[in-house]
Design a protein around this nucleic acid. Structure first.
Lengths: 209, 209
DNA sequence: GTCAGGAACATACCCGAAGTATGTGACCGA
DNA sequence: TCGGTCACATACTTCGGGTATGTTCCTGAC
């Protein structure tokens, strides 16, 4: 690593952590701008002012690098959404609060691009789903369970299919927002809420199949 | 091309069409089994008993080959779904008929795998969406328009966001079905219908945002 | 104090796969 | 029959992910 901005000489660990951070930041930028497939590891390394050796020292592979980045983003966002959910006493209001938190996060360009646009490409659909099982799938499952236990929706809704389809909705909304020019995001975000509200309404009234 | 099974010597055009067909069939098989990324063009060529030169003679690139395959599958399926939709006089029943046709097609392993599992990987998310605009997006748009015009749902539903989110639902259901072992498909297909019915129900009753 | 050892990278190389350039035989119209 | 073009095959280039190895610096043990 070129010591061009190395004013502070502290402990070694801080240096290596800085390198790791620089790599993750560079990857986030380039993957968001050019896409995962069209970004080479040399590009990422150059952007972080290191070489490819540093990448393979800190991460297992290109996919591994992406996965760490993915986990970072999804952990913070998912925690925020879960917090919003649990802050409400009513599960339906909690679900809406979590939804709003999610849609808001998708307006931030990096999150939507990495988690919903690039992740299927980088990890494959199976890998993507595997990674999401800790986050969105788990949250959706809890969310639906809460509404079922509260008697708001029918128990027949608590299936893997419902969770998958709901996740598909979130993904589509996220990608749409990530692609929408900033000046239109507020409007589109409101429009995205509509089908979710309709789904919740339909779930609570329809007890038949 | 090795003339090992060249019993019938007919016109040249039929030979070349047979080669093209063989390439598309081989691609469909291998992309479905191994995935797009893990299938090389040499593999496809070998499976069709030709070489890579034949591929680049008939198609523009690996992506181009996939796109032709995608268009073929999506054209037939989309036509069937549209036919099912237009056969019903009531738009809501028509939408359900189209949905059932779609879910049924997803149980056929090639369609679901190519159109929903591999397409985002092969074409990137933007390219996928671009290709789908002719098919699923257009059909969903007409479908929603029909329900709005018939007064079944609020006009506020007719937005790009609703179409996108509905497409995300279909995609998720399709991928789930494509991944589900054959013996469970019937059950899962029924479970997949539930959130769609709930969405339609919710749309028709909720006139507020 | 020094010396072994490992952490944190850099450098050089390998290899698979997409894409390209060129060769070749067969057919077809003139 | 002869030039041209179609329908491929063959040989080559390029690019990028991954690996193997070198190098420097710090750290801790004696």
């Amino acid at each position: 690593m070129l010591p061009d901005v190395a004013e502070v000489k502290t402990r070694r660990g801080e240096y290596t952590e800085a390198t790791r951070r620089a790599l993750l930041d560079a990857a986030a930028r380039l993957f968001t701008e050019r896409g995962f497939a069209k970004t080479s590891l040399d590009d990422v390394a150059a952007d972080a002012r290191v070489t490819k050796g540093a990448i393979y020292h800190h991460f297992s592979s290109k996919t591994g690098l992406f996965e760490v980045l993915f986990d970072e983003l999804e952990l913070t966002e998912n925690t925020a959404a879960r917090t919003a959910f649990e802050a409400e006493s009513d599960p339906v209001l909690g679900a809406l609060a979590a939804l709003d938190q999610f849609l808001l996060a998708c307006c931030e360009p990096v999150y939507g691009a990495i988690v919903f646009r690039e992740a299927p490409v980088a990890l494959g659909w199976d890998g993507w789903r595997r990674c999401e099982e800790k986050y969105s799938y788990a949250l959706l499952d809890d969310l639906i369970a809460g509404m079922v236990d509260g008697g708001m929706i029918a128990a027949s809704m608590r299936t893997e299919a419902t969770v998958s389809v709901a996740f598909g909705m979130l993904g589509a909304a996220g990608q749409l927002l990530a692609r929408t020019p900033p000046e239109d995001r507020e409007r589109v975000r409101g429009e995205c809420r509509v089908p979710f509200v309709a789904l919740l309404t339909g779930m609570s009234t329809s007890t038949h199949s």
